[in-house]
Amino acid sequence: MTKEAALVVDSVDVFHGYAQAIHSLSLTVEKGVFATLLGPNGAGKSTLLRSIMGILPAKSGHISFEGKEITKRSPNQIAAGGIALVPEGRKIFQDQTVQENLLLGGYLIRRDATLLAETLDLVYTLFPILADRRQQNGGTLSGGEAQMLAVARALMVRPRMLLLDEPSLGLAPQIVMEIMEHLKRLNETQGLSILLVEQTAQLALQYSSHAFLVSNGRMIVDGKSDEMKTHPEVTRVYFGG
């Protein structure tokens, strides 16, 4: 595997109004790597993803993707550059059908009918349950189905990097596992780079190959997922002491 950097975050500061949420944080995700960002509630994980996606621009520091600076770009430009986000809370459009939600994800490739159809096929094959629900409104899906739709919708962007914000939130462990399996497969077969934000460390470490531990907006540890499973800092960050 080539060790080329996909996403580089370089000493970034992010603010929520006056409150600084992220303090000079740096990380690098290599191409084709499944990385996870761990940390307790309020550590700044979601904020970092929103900042990478351009929703909440960093106040200082640099973010680049595949060598191109994206720090001051707007979300739609960043999406066009090949990054897709599965947002916290899924954010499915309740009044639009499953198909329409997916077509929204395919907005950037709307002019290429063949590619669009191909990509739709791909996600329906990956998540057959969505194909059954094609004409149903987004609001009628169960939590697990909605989460799959959120992942499928992000895949419709045909991203080279996928950001996921706590996809396990409010879901039963079994469904979470199923989603993780899908992500793992995408990562292995398509070479999709993944940055997964998770609170439940064990699960994320089981599927990822690289992990970052953040707390209070600062990077604590950065290392291989296997090593992190037993790292003392993990329990310390979650339970103090």
């Binding site: 707007s74 739609n76 897709a84 669009l116």
Partner: peptide, 26 residues
């Protein structure tokens, strides 16, 4: 019936999420 129209409707309900799919909301 058009993807463009789907983008318009989505932008009206949730501009932030919509923009992450490459839709130029502004």
């Amino acid at each position: 019936k058009t993807t463009f129209g789907i983008g318009v409707r989505a932008a009206a309900t949730d501009p932030e999420t919509t923009s992450t799919f490459g839709v130029p909301v502004k």
